[in-house]
Amino acid sequence: MRGILLAGGTGSRLRPVTWAVSKQLMPVYDKPMIYYPLSTLIGGGIREILVITNEHEVAQFQRLLGDGSQWGLRLEYAIQQRPAGIAEAFLIGEEFLAGEPAALMLGDNLLHGVDFRPAVRRMRGTSGGHVFGVAVADPSAYGVVEFDGAGRVLSIEEKPERPRSPYAVPGFYLYDADVVGIARALTPSPRGELEITAVNEEYRRRGALSVTVLPRGAVWLDTGTLADCMRAVDYVRAIDEGQGIKIGCVEEAAWRAGFIDDAQLRGLAEPLMSSGYGEYLVDLAAVDPFVAGQQPLSAAAR
């Protein structure tokens, strides 16, 4: 499965800050926003990823992320000329996907407390589409998914006035290779965009859309507004200071996925020592693998 990380858009709800920098490059506590969704893709075992962004910002992403080889990844870049909908990502990324299943992650979403590897593994060998559901206090503000006891999606609606369930759909989606053709056949919505909800609706119409409900305690944060960003900062800081865990740490995600080894992790830590970030990475590589909550150090075990 190959991944697409959509980091386009204008960031209009975060202006004037986003006149100077992409919203996906804004800091969320101690790291750029894009580290969080990137670490989610890596945590799902995905190492070939296409970053889609604006023409005038692509150089900034390339300077930050490079080709991904330092993390055991293959990163490529593509341009979205104008915001034309989330589903346009599949048309832009058609050549990169090369007929493989696709995982799409939105560049301003933070997901924590979830192991996505089982869902990704299942999608590698099956057909259809797969979304996730997270219980929220006000589902009418999001895309809402309704489903039966077997996890089959019954309806999926964008910001319904009367939600049929309390489960919102976060910005992480898994699809088979048909997604490119489905996206190409879409009619733009009244706002002139190719909607991801329309993609999901087509899979649902085919009887091929399933859902996994995120476990109680899982966290999903959409950092589209300044208030959302501040909530994300507060959450990440609380976990960092209270538990000593760095959410969205790309280096750790790559290490735990077995994409890099202990020596490579230590090498990545060296230029980061003065900020304290590097010390965290060094401690990871040195920790007793049997300490509660830690993964074994060998790539095979991970």
Rank of each mutant, 00 (worst) to 15 (best):
R162C: 04
L268N: 02
F172Y: 11
D115Q: 06
Q24L: 13
F90M: 03
Y29Q: 06
R13M: 14
G85N: 08
V153H: 05
V51H: 02
L209G: 04
V17Y: 13
G72Q: 02
T40E: 08
P163N: 02
I92M: 02
N109S: 15
E76F: 02
S69A: 14
R205E: 15
R266C: 06
S127Q: 12
G8Y: 07
L75W: 00
G192H: 11
A257W: 10
I196F: 11
H130T: 07
G149Y: 03
L64T: 05
V17R: 15
L221K: 07
P32V: 05
N54H: 15
A232W: 09
L104T: 03
L268M: 02
R164E: 12
F172S: 01
W220C: 09
Y280M: 09
I196D: 11
L284E: 01
Y36V: 02
M1Y: 00
P163R: 02
F90Y: 08
D148W: 03
G244A: 12
Q70L: 13
H130K: 05
D148K: 01
G72I: 08
V291Q: 14
T197H: 13
H56R: 11
C249E: 09
T10G: 15
G72M: 00
A7W: 13
A150I: 01
G66L: 09
G278K: 04
G217C: 09
L265M: 03
E202T: 14
D262Y: 00
S189Q: 14
T126C: 09
Y77H: 00
Q81N: 11
G44R: 06
E57R: 14
V250N: 01
D262P: 03
S210T: 14
E76I: 05
G217I: 05
L214C: 01
L226A: 14
I34D: 05
A185Q: 11
Q81C: 09
L214G: 05
G43V: 09
S155Q: 12
L221A: 07
N54W: 11
G278Q: 05
G128A: 08
G99K: 06
R2V: 00
D222M: 09
L97I: 01
A285K: 08
Y277F: 15
E270R: 04
L104W: 02
T225Q: 07
L268Y: 08
V136G: 04
S298W: 00
E48M: 13
A177P: 05
R216P: 05
A141I: 06
D240H: 14
G85T: 14
L214R: 00
G267L: 13
I86M: 05
R231T: 11
Y36Q: 03
D176N: 06
T225M: 11
